[in-house]
Design a protein around this nucleic acid. Structure first.
Length: 347
DNA sequence: AGGCCTACG
DNA sequence: CGTA
DNA sequence: GCCT
């Protein structure tokens, strides 16, 4: 997810003392909003959905209008609001928070007063916005491609698939093929089932390999849009080639529907300075896996009508394979001191 | 007034 | 260009 | 649009 860019910390970003007691939100609501999006409190539930939905629509609309600045600003505003531990009930409660300026606050006031934003409702009615939103909801389709299709007069996904002169790339073909599955949220039970499959595959290759769930489900979320794992070997360097082996095995099992592999770009001799926190250089892959319904806890053998559904669904899965020293560092960073390694390593 | 991730495929 |  |  993407949480937007870091914001410099200021003393005013911390809550001011409110000795008069006129604030109408818990005092903790505004305290401790970090300078960095990645350091902000990541709550399991979003307590300000009524605001963040609108901010994200404004961001999307800005993106479609190629207004990069406003797009970023609305995304950051949404990110800050999502990090709050409780719902905002009056504007006073967000005093001093970063990324919430004049315009954003005006929109929020409108929502507090009328329960809706009229500007956003206008945007939602716009034909171009609707089409671009629909097109970009396909995995592999961004604003440029969506705009191209819109200018050709296309309006529905069916029209895209029917149009003979459109050549979809590999990513987009997967996007259309598994559209409804990928659009659907992944449940915790499904994430666990994916974990079992990856675990079995990984340990078949290397019994001492270490696999850990990360991302939203690691933080205890009930639903997510993909499932993330960290994978490594206890002995430094042994993780080389492991990820490609895993991908081969998934292929052999016939459950690999899509695979985008990125080799490691970590090179000590090339790096000007050691950046421990740079996770982007590790081996990783973005997959779409076929998950059998029978593998999911709670859905075992409940299939009364086999003709009713396929008996499986597609799930987006990310695997990252750092060397073990970085792995430990990354896990501790994501996990915090309260959870032990035994709780986060899938065994 | 000017910036607003980046690296990879 | 699109992804994370 | 928000911040510097």
């Amino acid at each position: 997810m993407r949480e937007g860019r870091p914001v410099r910390v200021e003393t005013r970003h911390s809550i001011q003392n409110t000795p008069t007691g006129t604030d109408c939100s818990p005092p903790t609501a505004v305290a401790n909003v970090s300078q960095y999006a990645c350091q902000r409190r990541t709550t399991t539930e979003n307590h300000n959905k009524i605001f963040t939905d609108v901010m994200e629509e404004l961001a999307e609309s800005s993106e479609f209008n190629e207004s990069k600045g406003p797009c970023l600003a609305f995304r950051q505003a949404a990110s800050v609001l999502k990090s709050l531990p409780s719902a905002v009930h009056c504007l006073k409660a967000i005093q001093g928070l970063p990324c919430l300026g004049e315009h954003t606050k005006a929109v929020m006031e409108e929502i507090l007063t009328f329960g809706r934003s009229f500007k956003v409702e206008e945007i939602r009615c716009d034909e171009r916005y609707q089409a671009l939103k629909l097109f970009t909801s396909v995995f592999g389709v961004g604003p440029k491609t969506a705009e191209k299709w819109y200018r050709r007069g296309l309006r529905s996904l069916q029209e895209i698939l029917t149009e003979p002169n459109i050549q979809l790339n590999r990513m987009q073909r997967a996007g259309f093929l598994y559209y409804s599955d990928i659009s659907k949220a992944v449940s915790k039970a499904e994430a666990k089932a994916v974990g079992c499959i990856i675990e079995e595959t990984v340990h078949w290759i290397a019994p001492d390999a270490i696999l850990a769930l990360t991302g939203g489900f690691r933080r205890g979320k009930e639903y997510g849009h993909d499932v993330d794992f960290l994978l490594t070997m206890p002995e430094m360097g042994k993780e080389e080639g492991l990820l490609l082996h895993v991908i081969d095995r998934l292929k052999d099992q016939g459950i690999l529907l899509y695979c985008d592999y990125q080799g490691s770009t970590f090179d000590v001799s090339k790096l000007p300075s050691c950046r421990f926190e740079d996770m982007d250089c590790f081996q990783k892959c973005f997959l779409i896996l076929r998950l059998e319904q029978g593998q999911v806890e709670g859905e075992r053998g409940l299939q009364r009508d086999p003709g009713d559904s396929r008996g499986w669904r597609a799930v987006r899965v990310d695997l990252v394979a750092p060397p073990v020293d970085r792995y430990a560092f990354a896990l501790l960073g994501w996990t915090g001191s309260r959870v032990g390694l035994d709780q986060i390593i899938v065994k």
